[in-house]
């Protein structure tokens, strides 16, 4: 077990190195000159050159890469081209906002998806199940930006009960968290329903019922426990996106998080910020994957990777 974890962790480092090369190359291969975008058209050539030199864009690309990587390892992502602030500071100051929003959305998705998914499976083909299926279909199909705007129109513009943008009170969380959580809940609900259904048709459930166990005990002790593995997997993957899955929603609701920072930085070609956000996101996903794999081993002793 320990060996397995160590090997996976070791491989993850190489994976992240690959990601870093990719991120760095894509940003540098993209057409356009970030210095000109920052300096503006009317900037005198010597100012443009001074900016280029200050940020190291005059160096060969491999030199730039290794310099960036060396700093990134110690979480020093350089200075922002637009604000001239430390990128790590800019990211860290926005991480709590993104975390709050995503955790709220995540919690909302879980609170809706698990009970509805389980109940739909237990009452298969009932009206509740059909409504749940349609709701899940809508949740998955509706683009976040559209749903967000529609919710704003209904709850802010027409009913005047929730704010349109920003953060501060609990009310500010409702619309963006619901917009973000809707798609997550939909997928998770369908997964929960099918997992529970599959477990319900297993021999051990029939045996448990034949033994005369109460239906509640059968559901809680046998069905839900066995149905949990795919649900936990999916929850783990969703968690990996907790810092990166809300770009559009943050943009729509003017939420001051990582997503907005990334989008603004892309527009202004703030290389160092974009690189840092993408690398940080990739690291989160790699860590989440690793964690899910490890949790698997604990949940189901039959699973072995060696």
């Amino acid at each position: 077990m320990g060996q397995y974890v160590a090997r996976r962790a070791f491989l993850s480092v190489f994976l992240l190195l690959g990601v870093s090369v990719l991120v760095f190359s894509i940003m540098h291969m993209a057409p356009g000159d970030p210095v000109m975008m920052v300096a503006g058209l009317e900037a005198p050539p010597e100012v443009v050159e001074a900016i280029r030199k200050e940020w190291g864009f005059d160096q060969p690309i491999h030199v730039q890469y290794f310099r960036w990587l060396r700093r990134a390892v110690v979480l020093d992502f350089g200075i922002s081209l637009t604000t001239r602030e430390r990128v790590s500071f800019m990211i860290l100051s926005r991480v709590p906002n993104t975390l709050k929003l995503n955790l709220a959305a995540y919690a909302l998705a879980l609170c809706i998806a698990i009970p509805v998914g389980v109940y739909s499976a237990l009452r298969q083909y009932s009206l509740f199940d059909h409504v749940g299926t349609v709701a899940a279909l809508l949740g998955v199909s509706m683009p976040g930006f559209w749903l967000g705007l529609m919710l704003m129109i209904v709850f802010a513009l027409k009913l005047h009960i929730l704010p349109v943008f920003g953060m501060g009170t609990w009310k500010h969380y409702v619309l963006p968290a619901f917009t973000l959580g809707a798609a997550q809940a939909a997928g998770l609900m369908r997964m929960t329903r099918s997992s529970v259904l599959e477990a319900l048709h297993q021999d051990y459930v029939r045996t448990a019922r034949a033994k005369g166990l109460a239906e509640r005990v059968v559901i809680y002790k046998h069905v839900l426990k066995n149905a949990a593995i795919p649900i936990v997997t999916m929850m783990g993957f969703r968690f990996a996106y907790i810092l990166s899955g809300s770009f559009i929603v943050e943009h729509i609701f003017a939420w001051p998080g990582i997503g907005r920072l990334a989008i603004n930085s892309l527009y202004s070609r703030d290389y160092f910020v974009v690189q840092a956000v993408v690398l940080m996101t990739a690291t989160m996903i790699v860590i989440a994957n690793l964690t899910v794999d490890i949790i698997y081993c604990f949940l189901d002793p039959r699973i072995r990777y060696d």
Partner: peptide, 16 residues
């Protein structure tokens, strides 16, 4: 700062 023009207008309409 509200990046979406339509959301900016909604903010005006709600008085935010």
């Amino acid at each position: 700062n509200i990046p979406e023009p339509s959301v900016r207008l909604m903010a005006l309409e709600t008085g935010e």
